[in-house]
């Protein structure tokens, strides 16, 4: 069973192919912009090099973030389009899951967010518990206290929480996404269509034009 995985949640395109849970091929390119142009050619090239045909793809796995909003939508829209045309499922894997792929116990995962903030998510044995949230670095609380904090500025967050920390960043996430998706598919064949994990609500202010008083 071959899974195609990709992620454009940061300033990069990461693509991987995994057969029976083992990554057989991957590619990675750093890019601040141009992911929408580069993604499909990179997928096509990787499949051609690995000798994987379209009909070999059993599922499409996509990194859902959190991260760059536009990047999340590029990957998710492509994954949904591929799933539609291949007649195969698409499933989402978050950056938190990819970051703490093999960590057991209760873990707080941290990913960088704009303006000196972090996206946080509790996971138990790699499974998300509760909702992800956005936090400044100085006012982080987590209940219950995790066994370990892993990810962006993990040392500082761990010191705050009185636990141990292991700084890490998400690198070439597609490989981990492919492996995690393989395990998810082994548990269940049915998955909701992937959707970006924005964590932050859309930035929108109500209209400044107040409606007038309507007189009788």
């Amino acid at each position: 069973m071959t899974i195609l995985a990709f992620d454009t949640s940061g300033p990069f395109v990461s693509v991987a192919l995994a057969t029976d849970g083992r990554v057989i091929s991957e590619s990675f390119a750093e890019m601040a912009r141009g992911q929408a142009e580069a993604l499909m050619p990179m997928i096509a090239d990787l499949m051609a090099e690995a000798g994987i045909r379209r009909s070999d793809i059993a599922a499409v796995a996509v990194g859902t973030g959190p991260g760059n909003f536009t990047g999340l939508r590029i990957a998710v829209s492509a994954a949904r389009g591929l799933a539609l045309a291949l007649g195969r499922p698409a499933l989402g894997v978050s950056g938190f899951e990819a970051l703490v792929e093999d960590v057991s116990g209760l873990c707080l995962a941290s990913l960088p967010a704009p303006r000196e903030q972090v996206y946080l998510q509790m996971l138990r044995d790699g499974q998300p518990e509760g909702e992800a949230w956005l936090s400044g670095l100085d006012d982080i609380t987590a209940e219950p206290t995790p066994d370990v904090v892993i990810g962006h500025t993990a040392d500082r967050i761990a010191a705050c929480l009185g636990t141990s920390g292991a700084p890490a960043e998400l690198v070439r996430p597609a490989a981990a996404i492919a492996r995690i998706a393989t395990r998810k598919l082994a548990v269940s064949a049915e998955h909701p269509r992937p959707a970006p994990l924005y964590v932050r609500p859309a930035d929108a202010a109500p209209s400044r034009d107040g409606a007038p008083v309507i007189l009788p």
Partner: peptide, 9 residues
């Protein structure tokens, strides 16, 4: 992106 993905697949 949906169009490119469908076109490829």
């Amino acid at each position: 992106m949906a169009a490119k993905a469908i076109g490829f697949a």
